[in-house]
Design a protein around this nucleic acid. Sequence first.
DNA 1: GAGGACTTCCCCGCCGAGTT
DNA 2: AACTCGGCGGGGAAGTCCTC
Length: 593
Amino acid sequence: MATLVKAQSKAMTSSTAPDIAAMTWLEAAEHILKQEGPEMHIKDLTERVMNLGMVNSHCRTSLETLLYRQSHKPHSKFKRVIGRMGWFKLSNSVIAENNLSQSLNCCDEEEEAMMPKSVIVHKRKSKVIRREEEYGDCNREPDSDESDSSYSSTSDDEDDDDWSMKYRHIKGFAKRLIMTNVSLASELQSLENEISKSQQEKKYLLERLINKQSNARTTTTTNKQDQSKQATPVGGGGGATSVKVPTTPSNSNRLKRPLPSSPPVSHKPHPLTTPPTRSSEQRLIYNAISEPRDLFSTSSSSSNEEEEAAAGKRTGRALKEGTTKQNKASKEESIGTGGGGRKKRVRRLQAIPLHEDGSPVFPIKLGGLQVHSLGKVVWDRPSFHNERYIWPLGFKSTRSYPSMTNPSRRCLYTCHILDGKDGPIFEMVSEESPDSPIRASSATACHHIVLKAINEARDKQATNAGSGPEFFGFSHPSILNLIQLLPDADKCTKYKPTIFQQPLTRGKAHQPLPTSTDHKKPLLSSSAKKKEKPIPDSSLVGGAPLTVGGGTSDPSLAPVVNQLISYLSSDSDSNSNEYEHELVIDTSNSNRN
DNA sequence: GAGGACTTCCCCGCCGAGTT
DNA sequence: AACTCGGCGGGGAAGTCCTC
């Protein structure tokens, strides 16, 4: 009997509480619905999940949103109960899967051998009743007619019924699998057709490209010969480049449009030097087939946009981007740069609280990341910046992240950029072990150490996933923008500034953030400094008052003070004496280190 | 009109794949 | 190995619609 209880409790634990702490809302909801009933109201469901502590308490309830959204997806696990507002149920496929696994589990002979007959009978009985409720008649054989009486008869009858039930269930499951397979096969077929079409298009375009190239060479040779014969230049010269377009088997509409390589030459004064304007779609094809720049490279009138495209498309990556980034245009786009082949990216800023003068309110909170200090740009040491980032000395941020010792718990990591002999030193200090900071020569290396430790604690293989800059926060658009605006940032020669878009807003209007595309101005203007009010306490973590100008002997405050000094010194008109307000600065973290 | 139901938009973090 | 990029799903917030 003790064994039975043990087995039952084991089964219960494995089926009712599978790593509850690590569950998401959807997993928890699925679990509850599987365990407690086919349908449930959103409020009850939420309450059960909360009561059982199945999700992290810090998560705000959004099960409602999630379930509504899920219910719109074609293959979602959740369905709405028609006619009952706010009620949800599991989709049939999930129920079937659940029942199949249950039936497979339940027919574990060893387990059943240990159970008394009455328990087994009751279990099977309830199982069948539940299936009948859930499936209705969909899986029922025309001749099947089960009744409760069958369970009260002999044990042989029970076994037969049970096996026939399992047989029908598996049969139904197999049918569904076959249907899925058929639909997937047809989808595959259509995709293959599309691929073959694309290949034909590609072949056709390549043919045209080769044609065009050979014609261009011929024209160049002819022109040279003409020039040697005549002193006058070739006017409207492109006439010679008219290309006989080969016929193509492709029926694509796209190909019916005039392509850049075959402009109406008679109307173009310099078809070789003036590429026709293209739609974005045309440009895409243009990029994708890597049409040689040679055709237009002699032109001084080629747009900068094309310069970039040409620079990019020479690499395989750019070629790939040409096809995959089409839909990302709204998020990040390439724009003209004014030459030099530099590619500037437009990224969207996130709204951050600003003072009246446009300077940020510290700490800057961006999700799990808090930036306490931007630090100071070290422009005269090349190792403190690269093409993509500037690593300001004294940069300080904190981030909530899984603990290295117990990954199910989150702890606070403080990130610093320190001064090393050869360049910046990236330091991460875990809240749990402040005495053993992790230091590395790159942010990613630092982050990798943490990631490795966490993965080891989780018994997971370490991956190369993750980004140090992301972790530290200096790759975040809003932070990057602020760093770009720091004094001396423009002196970092290797650094290629990023262009930012103002954040999208819904409802409340935010104060527009300063960007590097705005007129360059220091984060704190002198007039603004005069008006500067103490930073509200609510935005700080245990702030301690500090009078600037009075000095501080605490070396740990140096980055903070440096930052203030850099602000103050950024405006030549400013006088530090004018800055008389008592500032409240977050010193708690500085003291911690 | 109030409150609940539902939708939409955006941000965040994880992680795999690709590039340097 | 270090780093970047992009996809994807979870989650929050705010808006709109609907019912009583």
